[in-house]
Amino acid sequence: MGYKFLENLSIADVAFEVHGDNLEEVLEYAADALANTMIKNPTAINTRITREFEVTSKDLDLLLIRFLDRLIFYKDTEQLIFGNVDVKVENRLDSWTAYCTAKGEKLDPARHQFVVDVKAATMHLLKVQNKGGEWSARVVLDI
């Protein structure tokens, strides 16, 4: 369980696949993949700053996109990168809500080995699915 970058897909951008035991894990691993797309050594991220937020959607694909977009938003507006994101998902009536606690710090070129900036998470080829109890998703990030 975890994430894997796809070498031969969307070659101008970055594609990855995540697998998890539940929806929460899918979102959490996707957050890790996002951080790892931007910096080479995500383990170097200190978790001294916390941001709590929630995203809601009727559609699981969109839930994942809104979640990633929010993390990108913190990166662009506060230069924050997160090393640990904790997610709780609730399914109420016909919509999903993810309650998120993201821990990280300001980007620091001295300690974080920059790779490439992510502009957005896209819906291209996006698929969040549950097959035989295993959750997975495929995401293409716009570089």
Partner: peptide, 11 residues
């Protein structure tokens, strides 16, 4: 135009 993905190039 790219001919190799970013992930592959990095490796």
């Amino acid at each position: 135009g790219r001919t190799m993905s970013r992930t592959k190039a990095r490796s």
